[in-house]
Write a protein that binds this DNA or RNA. Sequence first.
DNA 1: AGTAAGATCCAC
DNA 2: TGGATCTTACTT
Length: 225
Amino acid sequence: MARDVWRAATRADLRGLPADVAPRLLGARLTTVVEGETVAVRLTEVEAYHGRGTGPVPDPGSHARMGRTARNATMWGEPGHLYVYLSHGIHSCVNVVCGPEGVAGGVLLRAGQVIEGADAATRRRPAARTPRDLARGPGRFGDAVGLRHPLHDGIDAITGAPLHGATARLELLTDPLAEVASGPRVGVAGVAGTAVFPWRYWIPGDITVSSFRWGRGAREVSEAT
DNA sequence: AGTAAGATCCAC
DNA sequence: TGGATCTTACTT
């Protein structure tokens, strides 16, 4: 297979619905420089999240499902910025904001392969015993690339403008991947009467993809529909 | 004001 | 399987 070739992402690349943009982010490269340390990750697993009023159906799993709040404000802004939120009070998770400005949407970066700066990533993730686990899972991913909530929420991955001593840049594959797998999102709760959206996308066979887990109540919804 | 659950991870 | 640890949303 040919070596990956990347080009800088543009806002236009990210202006579509998250569910359409998400699969095109697979194989993309996110490069961060935090406190002078560079880490680059090749994205292997992502999830799309819509907001209230985004797309043809409401998204029960989205932080923006109830409308705009102080926490999810970045999701409503210009595409190409990164929405960094605190998960379970501990982990900083990273999303690429999608959709037109004024409409909420994002793609959660769930896992990736560290292709540059493995030493720095290992320092940030002492619990990782193998390179595979450096960015395998959204919390681990956030730790590996060094972006933290609330300091780096809203950082621009298109211009690479610095924010609190950090920069981030997103580059897409010049040739999108031909094979992409999709399925239900991880850890998203089921809500009675709503569908389970297959908005998780991953590179089939890649070992850095995280393991799947049903969200609370999601299995019942899935079986009922 | 109190409480339960959450786009999670790790050690027991 | 439960604890860490903080924000949000829903209940008293």
